[in-house]
Amino acid sequence: LTDEELVTMSVRELNQHLRGLSKEEIIQLKQRRRTLKNRGY
């Protein structure tokens, strides 16, 4: 997933992508998404 996709994707879509990932990967992705959102994309 690109940063842009992460930010513009709805939470529902995101959760579908996260299905099948490990807990660590999910946590990393969610942190990255929060960081991007805070940057004001």
Rank of each mutant, 00 (worst) to 15 (best):
L1Y: 04
L1R: 01
L1K: 02
L1C: 05
L1T: 02
L1S: 01
T2H: 03
T2Q: 03
T2Y: 01
T2K: 04
T2D: 03
T2C: 01
T2R: 04
T2I: 02
D3T: 01
D3R: 00
D3C: 05
D3W: 04
E4K: 08
E4M: 11
E5H: 06
E5F: 05
E5T: 05
L6R: 00
L6E: 02
L6W: 00
L6V: 02
L6H: 00
L6Y: 00
L6G: 00
V7W: 05
V7I: 12
V7A: 09
V7L: 13
V7N: 04
V7G: 06
T8M: 12
T8F: 08
T8G: 13
T8K: 15
T8W: 06
T8V: 07
T8S: 14
T8H: 15
M9D: 02
M9F: 01
M9E: 02
M9T: 02
M9A: 03
M9Q: 02
M9K: 03
S10R: 04
S10D: 06
S10Y: 00
S10N: 07
S10K: 04
S10P: 05
V11L: 08
V11N: 13
V11S: 08
V11I: 12
V11Q: 11
R12T: 12
R12E: 14
R12G: 09
R12H: 13
R12Y: 10
R12P: 07
R12L: 10
R12A: 14
R12W: 09
R12Q: 13
R12N: 10
E13R: 05
E13Y: 01
E13W: 02
L14M: 04
L14I: 05
L14W: 09
L14Q: 01
L14F: 15
L14Y: 05
N15D: 08
N15Q: 10
N15R: 15
N15I: 13
N15E: 13
N15L: 13
Q16K: 14
Q16P: 02
Q16G: 06
Q16N: 11
Q16A: 12
Q16R: 13
Q16S: 08
Q16L: 12
H17D: 00
H17F: 15
H17S: 05
H17I: 13
H17Q: 05
L18I: 10
L18W: 05
L18E: 01
L18A: 05
R19I: 10
R19L: 09
R19M: 10
R19H: 07
R19N: 08
R19T: 08
R19F: 06
R19S: 10
R19G: 07
G20A: 06
G20Y: 08
G20H: 09
G20E: 05
G20T: 09
G20P: 03
G20V: 05
G20I: 05
G20N: 10
G20S: 08
L21M: 12
L21A: 06
L21T: 02
L21N: 02
L21D: 00
L21K: 14
L21Y: 06
L21W: 05
L21R: 10
S22G: 07
S22N: 07
S22M: 05
S22I: 04
S22H: 04
K23G: 06
K23E: 10
K23W: 09
K23Q: 11
K23N: 08
K23P: 12
E24T: 10
E24K: 11
E24V: 09
E24N: 09
E24D: 11
E24H: 10
E25D: 09
E25T: 09
E25K: 10
E25L: 13
E25V: 12
E25S: 07
E25Q: 12
I26W: 05
I26F: 04
I26H: 04
I26V: 12
I26A: 15
I26E: 04
I27C: 09
I27M: 12
I27W: 11
I27R: 12
I27T: 09
Q28N: 11
Q28I: 12
Q28S: 11
Q28T: 09
Q28G: 08
Q28H: 10
Q28R: 14
L29E: 02
L29G: 01
L29F: 04
L29C: 03
L29Y: 05
L29K: 02
L29H: 04
L29W: 04
L29V: 14
K30W: 15
K30G: 03
K30C: 15
K30S: 05
K30M: 15
Q31G: 06
Q31L: 10
Q31I: 13
Q31T: 10
Q31V: 10
Q31A: 13
R32Q: 02
R32T: 01
R32G: 00
R32W: 02
R32D: 01
R33F: 15
R33C: 14
R33G: 01
R33I: 14
R34N: 09
R34C: 14
R34Q: 11
R34S: 08
T35M: 15
T35A: 15
T35F: 14
T35H: 14
T35S: 13
T35Q: 14
T35L: 14
L36V: 05
L36W: 00
L36F: 01
L36G: 03
L36E: 03
L36R: 03
K37L: 15
K37H: 08
K37G: 03
K37Y: 05
K37Q: 10
K37I: 14
K37M: 12
K37D: 04
K37R: 11
N38M: 08
N38W: 06
N38H: 11
N38Q: 08
N38T: 08
N38S: 08
R39A: 15
R39G: 14
R39K: 15
R39W: 10
R39E: 15
R39V: 11
R39T: 13
G40R: 10
G40T: 06
G40N: 11
G40M: 14
G40A: 11
G40W: 14
G40K: 12
G40V: 10
G40L: 14
Y41F: 13
Y41L: 14
Y41G: 12
Y41D: 12
Y41V: 14
